[in-house]
């Protein structure tokens, strides 16, 4: 199977539409009949990364690639970037503002959630250089699936 890539633009601080890209990714993966547990993990990570980009990120893009052996979600933004990635990964650490908190986010759970649910999470960021979060989800062959 050839791989399929879909890209969605993300707009900074657009809380009305934040999450739409991940809802579309979820709907697409359902049509491809992936394992529901796998879809759920991908959707959660995609949504958390998308919210991060909208809250902190400046404009950006969400890219989903469905390949034979894996799904890759990459969220890139042009925002302020992360000065200390290790600190940002700590559960409960957050620099989100009041608006994000009013939306039920900004509790410092986004990156830890992404780490928990993805098979691999790569974060590349520097102050003033934006952030790239790349998450890999492996598709396991049916015979290796746990019952």
């Amino acid at each position: 199977m050839a791989s399929v890539t879909k890209r969605f633009p993300l707009r900074a601080r657009d809380f009305l539409h934040a999450g739409e890209a991940s809802i579309q990714v979820q709907a697409f993966l359902k049509t491809m009949r992936l394992d529901p547990g796998l879809i759920r993990r991908i959707a959660i990570c995609s949504y958390e990364a998308e919210m991060n980009a909208v809250i902190h990120g400046g404009n950006g893009e969400l890219e989903m690639t469905l390949a034979e052996d894996r799904i890759v979600i990459e969220v890139r933004d042009e925002g302020a970037g992360i000065a200390d990635i290790e600190l940002a990964m700590q559960p409960g650490y957050s620099t989100a503002d009041e608006t994000a908190r009013e939306m039920g986010f900004g509790a410092g759970m986004g990156l830890p959630n992404m780490k928990t649910h993805a098979d691999e999470l790569e974060l590349a960021s520097a102050p003033g250089r934006g952030t790239r979060a790349r998450m890999i989800f492996r598709r396991r062959p049916p015979q290796e699936k746990t019952p």
């Binding site: 958390e48 039920g104 986010f105 509790a107 986004g110 959630n113």
Partner: peptide, 8 residues
């Protein structure tokens, strides 16, 4: 009221 907790 915390959506990230729901997602976790």
């Amino acid at each position: 009221d915390l959506m990230s907790d729901v997602l976790a």
